[in-house]
Design a protein around this nucleic acid. Sequence first.
DNA 1: TTGAAAGCGCTAACAC
DNA 2: GTGTTAGCGCTTTCAA
Lengths: 335, 335
Amino acid sequence: MITLKELAEKLNVSISTVSKALNGSNEIGEATVARVKETAKMYNYKPNRVALSLKNSKTKTIGVIIPDILNHYFAKVLYGIEKESAKQGYNIITCLSNELYEKEANSLELLANGSVDGFIMSIAEETQIKKKTDHFKDILDQKIPILMFDRVADEIDCDKVIMNDFQVAYDATMQLIKEGRKNILLINNIDGLSVGKLRAKGCYKAIEDAKHYDSSLIEMKIAKISCLEAEIEAFLNTHKTIDGIVAIDNISGVVALNSAKKKGYIIPKEMSIIGFSDDNVLPFTSPKLSTVAQHSDAIGEASVQILVNRLESKEPTDTVIRTIDFSLNLRETTL
Amino acid sequence: MITLKELAEKLNVSISTVSKALNGSNEIGEATVARVKETAKMYNYKPNRVALSLKNSKTKTIGVIIPDILNHYFAKVLYGIEKESAKQGYNIITCLSNELYEKEANSLELLANGSVDGFIMSIAEETQIKKKTDHFKDILDQKIPILMFDRVADEIDCDKVIMNDFQVAYDATMQLIKEGRKNILLINNIDGLSVGKLRAKGCYKAIEDAKHYDSSLIEMKIAKISCLEAEIEAFLNTHKTIDGIVAIDNISGVVALNSAKKKGYIIPKEMSIIGFSDDNVLPFTSPKLSTVAQHSDAIGEASVQILVNRLESKEPTDTVIRTIDFSLNLRETTL
DNA sequence: TTGAAAGCGCTAACAC
DNA sequence: GTGTTAGCGCTTTCAA
């Protein structure tokens, strides 16, 4: 990496002249500018980002904290974040909390030493269960902005990007009700999460609002992912009247579909299923699973836009809470 | 963020005294050290990472370039990379090439301005197909080390972490041969990639080495992911004698299993299937897919170890090529 | 039109 | 034992 200083020596001008010439200042003579630019190109000069960061107290870097990168939803959000960041000229430093409070708090603290201009994050499961928020406040106190997506902390005043989890679960459930399903199973694999609670509420509300349809909802809370298949199968064994399933996490929908098929249900004739899975599971299901599309990449993009906007605006702005649209993709497991 | 300077003012000592005290220098008196440390803790002092980077010409940051984060394999490698990096005190800046040469070259160039100490990457599909390598050489010329994993460039002399793709495909195929399968289908969705070619070679070699078993191999090359299911089904329709399948990419195995089930094959009695998928697809298959386990997180961890080792060693070291073990997980789709 | 100098936050060689 | 100073690479004010 060649520096300004070295360029200046080669050109026999001062450092500041080179700097100005390269930055298109009109203080410098045309001839000099040309000469400097040529030499800079020749030696492939690129301004040292670290020096710039120190000078400007801006790193043009966003810290991203993801709870679980193996979850396809988060991978897709990250995809959106990276795409939009690159567009806006920002780098992203990625940390994975692996659903642990300790790791999350640690990453925040570590990156708050000048490594990043702001954070985009979704809260770890453990953090939500233990209702920890002090580590967020610490960062915010240092005037480093945080944007939370998906799993957010209501008590914390910061930018947020969310889905209307309540509404979308409501709509999904209502779809099944209108199909005439009477005994709907709600598979809840994420009861510890803010979004899990919201989605469950939406399901119950739909049942309530549609009392005259006389549909009922039974909720099945599953603690761990490990025994998912076994649990669902066992449940279906003891609840023969189930004729509709809403699975509000990323994978239960597919598992439920497989279980139901295995038990001989004709789908969607005898049973409807709606999952929250993303497109990625479609190659694996037959019939094709009807799903709630989470527009994960849009969530990532919006997050970056809002955060960058805050970082680059002069005046303090009100915190924004953006709700991203969802859509119900009815495919082959619904009527 | 409080600085050394501010601390020094509060304590009425010089900046360097504070610095030395905090860094445990024995030049400073015990009492002062105590006083300084206490105040530092009180004000939650943390050394500014950017300043340190500038000073040391070391960022303690690794640039990671991933071809496709929506591919579970890469997500898992990233998981391993992040885990080991954190352990070693490094941050990672993540870039996604999305399989494009342009984006890959761009990311390399962008981060080579002092943002990172080295790179860990897997080559984009387009780069491999077009056989581009100049962008790697540029970076290496600047003395910034690159470590390539999985998809590597043979012509480039740098650290590499790979699986024995040839051997593992060989073993998988041999397994089917020994099960008595006579008409084995090789589903190749990644013919453009170095690893795809290696795996295919392994399959052919197994057939050759086991001539006396009289098994045959038919290769099906698939260009795009979009029509995967349709293509596989169509193929099975016109090739009724197929009794074994080796799918050498991440998802074809599951798709093939579903297709075969749909066509009424009894598995594994009438047909054996081995995929290269990771554990993540298991909840979605019944019977459970037999797979080649890629140990993706180990690949990520090894990559970080090797790169960090190079970054922190005084003497120039020979480039290392590490081969990560694989294992054949025979589950329910093989005999 | 060009250059000198200060300063971003830190460390370390050197002076006191 | 503590302080001064230079310097990492850059921008920017001010002086020439």
